[in-house]
Computed example of a mutant assay.
Amino acid sequence: MNGEMILGYDVEQLRQTLNIKDTHIHYFVLTHYWFKADPYFIAAPYDHKTMNALVAFIQGEASKINETFGLNPEDVTKILKQFYECDELDTDEINQITSKIGMISFLEFFHKIDLVNNWESGDGSNIPSFEREGLKNFIRAIIVEVQSHVD
């Protein structure tokens, strides 16, 4: 593979894929080591490589709107829920998983996506199957909301 890669995934292959969903639900934990924000636990119909590319795409879209703004795990979770059929796991759901598989397995069960590492891996741009109507306006609203609390 000599094309663009995002954390081990061939972006050109993704660009040609019409259906990005998997037949299974996968579990992810979104973190951001700069913000030291709480992790967000997500259930998604995407394998870990597609999810990494999708998160990179979302961050790239935010950067196109405001290149100095960085999304945090809460922001990305809102976007994933609104546009990509993902669910945020609540404490009870996380506890149920932990009780079934144990804490050690729990840490392996969830695919970790650190937003900083993800962003540095590539922007996931120009992937038609990631485009959603209203996505850019939704991201813009998040940026405006966050910046209104900072200014």
Rank of each mutant, 00 (worst) to 15 (best):
D151T: 14
M103R: 11
G8A: 11
Q13N: 13
E145K: 07
E61W: 04
N66M: 06
K136P: 10
S148Y: 11
N19L: 14
H111Q: 08
E67M: 06
N126P: 13
E4L: 13
V150F: 15
H48R: 12
D47H: 04
E88Q: 14
E74M: 06
F83I: 02
G70H: 09
D151M: 11
D47P: 03
P128G: 06
P73Q: 07
W34M: 14
T98M: 14
Y84Q: 05
E4P: 05
E12V: 05
H149Y: 15
N137F: 14
I42E: 00
F106D: 01
A44G: 05
N117W: 07
L18S: 12
Y9C: 11
K112H: 07
K36D: 13
T68L: 11
V11I: 09
M1F: 14
E145S: 11
E131P: 01
E108Q: 12
R132D: 03
L30W: 08
I6F: 03
R132S: 04
I143K: 03
I113F: 00
D75G: 11
G60M: 10
P45F: 03
D47Y: 00
V76K: 01
K21C: 10
N95T: 14
M5P: 12
G122H: 04
S63R: 13
K100I: 10
Q59N: 07
A37V: 09
K64V: 12
E85L: 11
I6E: 05
W119K: 06
I139R: 00
D75L: 12
E131S: 09
K36M: 13
F28C: 01
I104W: 12
L14F: 02
N66T: 07
G134P: 03
Y9P: 01
A43T: 10
V11K: 01
L80Q: 02
F83T: 02
G3I: 04
K100V: 08
T68W: 08
D87M: 10
H149T: 15
Q96Y: 13
G70R: 08
L30I: 10
W119N: 09
G122P: 01
F106T: 08
L14W: 00
D87V: 11
A141R: 14
A37K: 04
S105I: 07
P45K: 12
N137C: 10
T17V: 07
H26M: 04
I139E: 02
K36G: 15
I113W: 00
N72C: 13
F109Y: 13
I142C: 02
N2E: 04
N2Q: 07
Y84C: 01
S148N: 14
G102Q: 06
H48E: 15
H149G: 08
K21W: 04
N95L: 12
E74A: 05
M103F: 12
I142V: 07
L18A: 09
K36T: 15
V11P: 01
E74P: 05
F28L: 04
L107W: 09
F109N: 05
N126C: 09
H26Q: 05
D123H: 13
